[in-house]
C-alpha cells in the first residue's frame, strides 16, 4: 500500500509542479463541450436529449488525452527502468498509475460538470449524489482499461493514435451504460433504473480490473 502511495506521490508531485496535464485536459474538455454545442441549431430542444451523450464524449476524449501521457515520461526519460528496478510488484506500478489517472480524470470532470450544466442548462444539483456515483464508476472503468492500454500504446510507433483505437472498442460497454445512466438521471427516472446501469458498470469494472491485473505484468516485461 505504501509502495503504491510512493509512486502515486511521485507522479502527483511532478504534476503539481508543472500542472501540464490537468490544465490541458481541462481546456480540451471545455472546448469539446463548446464545439458540440455548435453541432445543434441554436435553441434546439434536441440538446436536452443529447446532453448526456455529449457529456460523456467530452469526458472520454479528455481522459484519453490524459491517459495517453501517463507512461510517456517514464519511457522517454528512461524512468521506466528505474520503476522496474524498484523492489515492487509490477501490479503496484499499475495500481499507482491507475489511481493517478483516476485522480486526473476526476479533477477534470468535477470542474467541467458545473460548467457543462451552465452551458447546456441542465440540472445536476438535485441528483448530485447519483451523478457523482455514475461518473466515478465509469471513470474508474476508463482508467482501468486506459492505463493498461496506454502502457501498450506508448511502445507503438503511433502512440497518440493507437490509444483511442485500442481503447474505444473495448470500453464501449462502459460508454453505453454511462450514457444511459446519466440520461436516466437527467430525465428524472426512478433510482432502480439508474442503479441497474450503475451496477452493470461496476460489474464491468471488476471484470476489466481482473483481466488487467493478470495481464499487466506481461506488458512491462523487459
Amino acid at each position: 500500500m505504501s509502495k503504491i502511495a510512493a509512486i502515486l506521490w511521485k507522479d502527483l508531485l511532478s504534476e503539481f509542479r508543472s500542472k501540464e496535464m490537468v490544465i490541458s485536459m481541462m481546456v480540451f474538455s471545455l472546448m469539446v463541450a463548446v464545439i458540440f454545442n455548435f453541432s445543434f441549431p441554436p435553441g434546439s430542444e434536441f440538446i436536452k436529449d443529447a446532453a448526456s451523450g455529449i457529456l460523456w464524449m467530452t469526458f472520454i476524449f479528455a481522459s484519453l488525452l490524459g491517459m495517453g501521457r501517463s507512461f510517456v515520461y517514464e519511457v522517454d526519460k528512461g524512468c521506466m527502468q528505474g520503476l522496474m528496478l524498484a523492489p515492487v510488484d509490477r501490479i503496484v506500478i499499475y495500481v499507482a498509475k491507475l489511481l493517478l489517472n483516476l485522480i486526473f480524470i476526476l479533477i477534470v470532470e468535477s470542474i467541467t460538470l458545473p460548467l457543462f450544466s451552465i452551458f447546456f442548462k441542465l440540472d445536476i444539483w438535485t441528483d448530485l449524489g447519483a451523478i457523482a456515483l455514475v461518473i466515478f464508476v465509469s471513470s474508474l472503468g476508463f482508467a482501468v482499461i486506459g492505463t493498461l492500454f496506454s502502457a501498450i500504446a506508448v511502445n507503438t510507433k503511433t502512440r497518440e493514435v493507437m490509444l483511442p483505437i485500442l481503447h474505444f472498442p473495448i470500453s464501449i460497454p462502459v460508454i453505453i451504460c454511462a450514457v444511459q445512466a446519466t440520461s436516466a438521471i437527467f430525465q428524472g427516472e426512478a433510482w432502480s433504473v439508474i442503479w441497474g446501469w450503475t451496477r452493470l458498470i461496476i460489474m464491468f469494472d471488476v471484470v476489466f480490473f481482473i483481466v488487467a491485473f493478470w495481464t499487466f505484468e506481461f506488458i512491462i516485461e523487459e
Binding site: 492500454f149 485500442l166 473495448i170 452493470l200 495481464t215
Partner: peptide, 16 residues
C-alpha cells in the same frame, strides 16, 4: 494481452 481483452469483451459488449 489485447487478444485476451478483446475476447473477454465480447459477452460484455453483447450484454450491454
Amino acid at each position: 494481452v489485447f487478444g485476451i481483452f478483446g475476447f473477454v469483451d465480447v459477452p460484455i459488449v453483447y450484454m450491454s
